[in-house]
Amino acid sequence: MAGAAEVSEPQLGLTTVDPGGAVTHLDLLDEGTSEIGTVGAPRAMTTDGRYLFVETDAGVEVVDSGRWTWDHVDHFHYYRAEPREVGTVSGAGPATVATTNSSTTSGTGLYFAGTGDAVLLDTEALSKGELVERFRIATDPHDGMVVPVGSFALVTGAGADGSAGTVRGYTAGGDPTGLEEQCTAASGTITTRVGAVVGCADGALLASVVDDELTVERIPYPAGTTAAPATAFANREGRPTVAALAGPEGADGVWLLDTRARSWTLLPAPAPLAQVSAVDDEDEHVVALGTDGRLLVMDGSDGALLAATEPLVAASLAAGRTPTLVADQQRTYVAGPVERRLHEIDVADDARVARTFETATDPLFTAETGR
């Protein structure tokens, strides 16, 4: 990206979108704030750690935070540039956005359920401030996904009941690869170091590129399980293990999927949960947001509750406003839109609240950027 500077440490920040569409960045290094711009009234937001993909009446508006990390697996490079509004991808929502672990290569998938348009954006072009659609494929409208996988993508197809029932492989140019897999009630996707995960009623699909070919493996749930399937995944970016609630509020527990071992583990939930994320560190921590507003730290080996904060975002949950929960290597962040507070929590230190930041308006959606 022209004008980008390589720096010596990650440029971590919290970038928020308020109900009026104002985009604000909080620099976690110097604690200063800056205004990036304004998007339309936001309905949902997805991030890859650099870009904010904000669903509005116009489609999906893209904002570049100007902070990112280039992951070379064995080492990292950190960059900073001027933030900017990139543009809008037109479409009728609801919109589902699927990203990878790279903000400069591969693609970004968008699916517009209102029209059935399946779009793959060129992420390299995005890093240059350009919106380039590698393909836009018309499908029967359903609650679908476009999942980028290297130089390929998976696109869901509508099942008999109108939900996503299959995934089909495409090249980045939109040509079918011939790959097709059944995936009943396909829901939820995330990319790890191993590959791209797609949740299905009977387990998950793990997609990767092997010898320049798109391949898909099926990871079934353990035999005999009666727990509800995972429908949304979260983790510390790039790590192989991902977490998901099993049933509403984790009524059946917490699913952990180890994409490296191709295995599922079902943990008991220590309390009713609103969200969960795998930290996947040396201590196998899992963080969860209780429905009472507490940040809970769980043992990923047996589900034991290790630590908890006081209620931080109880008012937001009571009002039906979804807080943000995001974990990185050092800290976990919880944002409360009603409380107008952003909390930084040290998971390894008994869930100590390290810093709290007040916001001038409701942080309706929050992204950790620069990671």
Rank of each mutant, 00 (worst) to 15 (best):
273 L>G: 03
273 L>N: 04
274 A>V: 10
274 A>S: 12
274 A>L: 04
275 Q>I: 07
276 V>G: 15
278 A>C: 04
278 A>Q: 01
279 V>T: 02
281 D>N: 09
283 D>L: 05
284 E>G: 10
286 V>A: 06
286 V>I: 11
286 V>R: 07
290 G>P: 02
291 T>C: 12
292 D>G: 06
296 L>I: 07
296 L>S: 05
297 V>F: 06
298 M>Q: 15
298 M>N: 13
298 M>F: 10
298 M>V: 08
300 G>C: 07
301 S>Y: 12
301 S>K: 12
301 S>M: 10
302 D>N: 13
302 D>M: 05
303 G>H: 08
306 L>I: 08
308 A>D: 11
309 T>Q: 02
313 V>F: 04
313 V>K: 00
313 V>Q: 01
314 A>S: 04
316 S>W: 03
316 S>F: 03
316 S>Y: 02
316 S>Q: 01
318 A>L: 10
318 A>Y: 03
318 A>Q: 14
319 A>L: 05
319 A>Y: 00
322 T>V: 14
322 T>E: 15
324 T>E: 13
325 L>V: 05
328 D>K: 08
329 Q>L: 09
330 Q>A: 09
331 R>F: 07
333 Y>R: 01
334 V>S: 03
335 A>E: 00
336 G>V: 00
337 P>Y: 08
338 V>K: 14
338 V>L: 14
339 E>H: 06
339 E>K: 08
340 R>A: 10
341 R>V: 09
342 L>N: 05
342 L>V: 00
342 L>D: 01
343 H>W: 11
344 E>P: 06
344 E>S: 15
344 E>G: 11
345 I>V: 15
346 D>A: 15
349 D>V: 06
350 D>M: 01
352 R>N: 12
352 R>Y: 13
355 R>N: 09
356 T>I: 12
357 F>H: 13
358 E>W: 05
358 E>R: 10
361 T>R: 10
361 T>A: 11
363 P>Y: 05
364 L>Q: 15
365 F>V: 03
